[in-house]
């Protein structure tokens, strides 16, 4: 309690992680992580496989105990198990974590009862994740995407304030993925805090207020996707239809750093898009010309390849191993 709101005086942050480390054998899975997630924030935790995301999330959830450092959710430690804190938290389960031989509705009803949530919440949540049509289908007969949505529903059914989602869109088709984005945006609009991991950088860019990129157990950077892209040194690209300009003339344009042919376009990399565009306009006109600014993916790849070089010799351990 003492450290909970000592610094700000306001309401405690939804998640506060301070100097958290976790070691497995001689490998430091999480290395001195510090994080603060405000109530109502949509926070993305990104990083390559084996970077320590799952371990860090499980420490935040209170499922694992950190070797050192402190974690507080709404100012209270999640470890050891605190049954008065747990109703405020929702955790997406593995897509295998269903009560066997139950229908989707029976499973979710059981989960709701574990939290003492009202029965009406079951139908509402199934509706929200688009499983109303499958309510009477046995969990074993659900498709991969449906199982994943039921696992997400299990995290939401009791209306938690803080929601942990682990790659919630991994097995979804593009349409289901966009539908889930709407569900997640709806949760954010209700003021809930969402902490989630993903490998979809476009998704993190579209949804997250802030992201942290974890590399080799350390937080490499924490900021809004917008600031990260703006601050990055990754070049923008100008795409010309093939034949508009030959490669040598394009390379001679001032500001062009690299010229390449990709996917039927002549791609010019530059840090001064405006200058290059007006030069191209003067030479050949801008018919069919497209520009691509650096994306979060560029920033992410640049950062992870630069930083993980230091420990590249260590093989990345599998995050989960199914029996």
């Amino acid at each position: 309690m003492s450290s909970a709101s000592a610094t700000t005086g306001g309401p405690p942050p939804a998640v506060r992680v301070e100097g958290v480390s976790k070691r497995y054998g001689d490998r430091l899975a999480v290395d001195g992580v510090r994080l603060e997630i405000r109530p109502g924030e949509f926070f993305g935790l990104l990083g390559p496989n084996g970077a320590g995301k799952s371990t860090l999330i499980e420490i935040m959830e209170g499922l694992r105990r950190a070797d050192s450092g402190t974690v507080a959710l709404f100012g209270r430690p999640p470890w050891p198990r605190d049954t008065s804190l747990l109703p405020r938290i929702g955790v997406q389960t593995q897509s295998s974590a269903f009560f066997v031989r139950q229908t989707a509705h029976e499973h979710l009803r059981t989960v709701a009862a574990l939290y003492g949530a009202p029965r009406g919440a079951v139908d509402r949540t199934l509706e929200a994740v688009g499983l109303t049509g499958q309510r009477k289908v046995r969990v074993e007969a659900l498709s991969g995407g449906q199982r994943q949505r039921l696992a997400i529903a299990s995290a939401l059914v009791h209306g938690p304030e803080l929601i942990f989602l682990d790659e919630p869109t991994a097995a979804l088709d593009p349409q289901a993925r966009r539908d889930l984005w709407e569900v997640l945006r709806g949760l954010k609009a209700e003021g809930r805090t969402i902490v989630y991991t993903t490998h979809h950088l476009d998704e993190a860019e579209a949804l997250c207020d802030r992201i942290a990129i974890l590399v080799d157990g350390r937080i490499a950077v924490t900021d809004s996707p917008h600031n990260l892209v703006t601050a990055s040194r990754a070049p923008s690209r100008v795409l010309l239809p093939l034949g508009l300009l030959d490669a040598e003339r394009a390379a001679a344009v001032e500001g062009v750093e690299r010229v390449d042919v990709q996917g039927g376009s002549l791609v010019l990399e530059t840090h001064t898009v405006g200058q290059v565009l007006s030069a191209v306009d003067r030479i050949s006109g801008l018919d069919g010309v497209q520009t691509r600014t650096a994306s979060l993916e560029d920033v992410y790849l640049d950062l992870t390849s630069r930083l993980s070089g230091t420990a590249a010799a260590a093989p990345a351990p599998a995050e989960t191993t199914e029996p």
Partner: peptide
């Protein structure tokens, strides 16, 4: 055993159920 390997126990652990 099944509940633990399917993560059902983890689900229950994260709920306030005793």
């Amino acid at each position: 055993m099944q509940w633990r390997s399917d993560d059902i126990l983890r689900l229950i652990r994260m709920s306030p159920a005793p």
